[in-house]
Design a protein around this nucleic acid. Structure first.
Lengths: 194, 194
DNA sequence: AATTGACAAAATATCCAGATTCTGTCAGTT
DNA sequence: AACTGACAGAATCTGGATATTTTGTCAATT
């Protein structure tokens, strides 16, 4: 299993710089020079590592999902009541950065860019998260800890959509955390019913 | 209680024409003339009924929520298992037109316009829906049919966010309906647990 | 080998003037 | 009273010409 540290530290610096620039200026207004300066290298050197801006963005998205999926899976492995584990796992997954992104001045644009320029990465990432959750649900069901109202894969997808919905309407990080906890309590009860 | 039929039929024609134009061209690209022609009146006559385009849009939004809230409340009043009633009520509420809006070519813009030019109407509408659901939850709780994991108002808000989340990720109306049913089954179990 | 300054080509932004469309409001008709 | 044609002003498109920024790729340097 790869983690976020098995990557070239220079590439990591580039990605971090890129993320800062994107968050500050948005995708369109961020130039390759902005990213290079932030990473402490020259612009041409950037091209030795990434093909272009879109390539950087895709990589950024891939890494976000890698780290998110790992945190999510780790948190799901911890002991506790179904609902609590589920909620905390989702929070661990990176709700914070996601909410920050949505509430940032350029969150809107970045989301657009993500969906058009990195749709493969997003799709793969979301599918990966759903897969992790589905397997966890299956495992819990096998141990009799939950009763699924449908195929694990669908339940997983719907649960994730649900949390995403909370994110959209969240007004602050704290509000989001509260909502996730309430929702997962409800989901936990629903899954353990009967 | 007002319903959608106690409005001047001419104003209704205007609103319907406006809705068609907005859906076809988006808010920005729809002219007052487009709306007037669709409603079978002259453009100046439009100004006898509405102050300007924004006014029409706000009215449209208000009426959408009025009718949605009424359908929602009516559907909640029908008998059935908690989860089923909840899901069907949400679907009755107007998931169809909402999904249509989100998947329309100008859904994005219209949503923006809605949030900036009709934020009061949206806020009031959403609050109204949440209130209806909260009261229903309280009534069900009083009759011992559900056990709330938190204040009814918060549970209601979170449930509605949840369904909204499903809408965002839905790829088609059918998929949305399936997801809502699955989700409400889960929520129903969660609410009736213990 | 890793990096850079510098360069040409492409893309973007800025400005402008003219044409077109849209808006809001008349006075006037039915 | 309900509505319309017509008008002036505002706003929005259009296209072209110029300036600026950004990109991707060299050959040259460390």
């Amino acid at each position: 299993m790869k983690d976020q540290f098995d990557i070239d530290p220079k590439q990591m610096a580039i990605l971090m710089s890129a993320w800062e620039a994107f968050a500050a200026y948005g995708f369109r207004k961020t130039s390759m020079d902005d990213i290079a300066r932030g990473a402490g290298i020259s612009r041409p050197a950037l091209y030795l590592h990434y093909k272009n801006k879109e390539d950087i963005f895709r990589s950024l998205t891939r890494h976000y999902y890698e780290q998110a999926t790992q945190s999510f899976a780790e948190a799901l492995d911890r002991p506790g009541a179904i609902g609590e584990v589920l909620g905390e796992a989702y929070l661990a997954k990176g709700g914070e950065s996601a909410v920050a992104m949505l509430t940032s001045p350029h969150g809107h644009e970045l989301l657009d860019v993500k969906l058009t320029n990195a749709s493969e990465e997003v799709e793969a990432g979301e599918a990966g998260l759903a897969e992790v959750l589905a397997e966890w649900l299956d495992a819990q069901a096998a141990r009799g800890r939950v009763t699924l109202p449908g195929p694990a894969r669908e339940v997983a997808r719907v649960c994730l959509s649900t949390f995403k919905g909370l994110m959209k309407t969240a007004e602050s990080h704290e509000g989001f955390v509260r909502d996730v906890r309430l929702m997962s309590a409800l989901l936990g009860d629903g899954l353990t019913a009967r």
